[in-house]
């Protein structure tokens, strides 16, 4: 089987994201970990592009890489973790953790091979806006998913209030 260009690109993105994820969870310096997670997010955004999810790829870069990850980096730099370099990165139980990770991946794969998926649907067969376009996602968000969409805004509001309350100095009155 000869690889098409898209499959070659997918193979690169998949290998790079696995390598970035592995480095992200094993680096000793937290800032290096964050930068490897950034690389993981960018490569996953590339995979989203290959899978016809253009809007999600943009959201992935803007929200995950742009907002969430910078937030993490701010907290790492704010906390100034001097002893992180000196202490062991993993608890003594890390072989068990590795076993859990491996067996989860293996079990997920076994579960997949047990299920017969319907054959892939080609994009030309459907009507309406193309998959992954802003129009297609918007029709879903304001149609059948309108209630979950509103609940998501409530969740975000609760998170904002919760973060402010938690991070406020203790005993500080207004």
């Amino acid at each position: 089987m000869s690889l098409t260009f898209a499959q070659f690109v997918f193979a690169y993105l998949a290998l790079a994201s696995v390598a970035s994820a592995l480095l992200a969870v094993t680096r000793r310096n937290p800032v290096h970990s964050m930068l490897w997670v950034l690389s993981l997010f960018m490569h996953v955004a590339g995979i989203f592009l290959l899978l016809n999810a253009e809007f999600l790829a943009a959201v992935q870069v803007i929200i995950y890489a742009g907002a969430i990850l910078i937030f993490y980096l701010f907290v790492v730099m704010l906390l100034n973790l001097p002893d992180e370099e000196a202490r062991p990165r993993f608890g003594r139980h890390w072989p068990f953790a590795a076993l859990v990770g491996l067996s989860f991946a293996a079990l997920a794969w076994l579960a997949r091979t047990d299920v017969a998926l319907p054959p892939a649907v080609e994009a030309a067969e459907r009507e309406g806006p193309p998959l992954g376009s802003v129009a297609g996602l918007g029709e879903g968000l304001f149609g059948p998913f309108a209630l979950p969409f509103e609940i998501a805004s409530l969740v975000l509001l609760a998170a904002i209030v919760g973060a402010v309350v938690l991070a406020r100095k203790r005993g500080e009155k207004r």
Partner: peptide, 28 residues
């Protein structure tokens, strides 16, 4: 690929001793 990435994230969450890096593993 998704199963492998989830396994790596689960390993990171269980094995790291730093809370921030555990949260990052959840993001993975």
């Amino acid at each position: 690929l998704s199963a492998i990435l989830f396994g790596i994230g689960a390993f990171g969450f269980l094995a790291r001793r730093n809370i921030i890096l555990m949260l990052v593993s959840i993001e993975v």
